[in-house]
Amino acid sequence: MLKTRIIPCLDVANGRVVKGVNFVDLVDAGNPVEQAKLYNDQGADELCFLDITATSDNRETMYDVVRATADEVFIPLTVGGGVRTLQDIRKLLEAGADKIGINSAAVSNPDFVKEAADKCGSQCIVVAIDAKKKEDGSEGWEIFTHGGRNGTGIDAVEWAIKMAEYGAGELLLTSMDRDGTKQGFNLELTRAVSDAVRVPVIASGGVGNLQHLVDGVIEGHASAVLAASIFHFGEYTIQEAKDAMKNAGIPVR
């Protein structure tokens, strides 16, 4: 039976781990390679690096981090943040990433996702969707780009369907309303997207305790759950998260 994945995510800036609260107030908390090894040893099912300095000139540092991680960590590694060209994707794959997260570049040019999936295979293309409750009060969620700064007017569920059609192998769905709040995933959003597409959906944004992970799967219908700070600051181990999910009847590795 396929297991539900638990994915710790590390936000990386200039080669160091940070975690933002609503994407501001960054706190430096360590070496990403060491942290990745720790999660690997704890039984994480995958790892995710989000390069939040990606728009600046410091790309090479991230390739070094990916290379050093891939040398020692033998579980799948997703890397996202500032990926704009096929060349960016190739370099990350060559450094040892298994999947590449594409966010803003997909919005500015949806065909980039098609092209990337054609060239590299859908299995390594993860479209990251940052969604927020529509501000005009209408039903549903709008997607945002550039770390949540820029609204797009695009409906999140429609976008998810389109990205799956364009060849995304997986969607990483972050609720901007919840990110950093520790109030749990936006379950309504997660379920709406998960039920609308055939590809797996990773729930992200807002995890504050282990029940939130369980809720994301059982109520949100997510195929995988992603969290940062609850693992990162040692509040819970990966094993504790797995135990909680197992006790709730969710198959885990």
């Binding site: 396929l2 099912d45 055939r198 195929s223």
Partner: peptide, 11 residues
């Protein structure tokens, strides 16, 4: 209802 691709850990 099973997702495609078959993605993740299995025995």
């Amino acid at each position: 209802s099973l997702k495609i691709p078959h993605m993740g850990w299995n025995e």
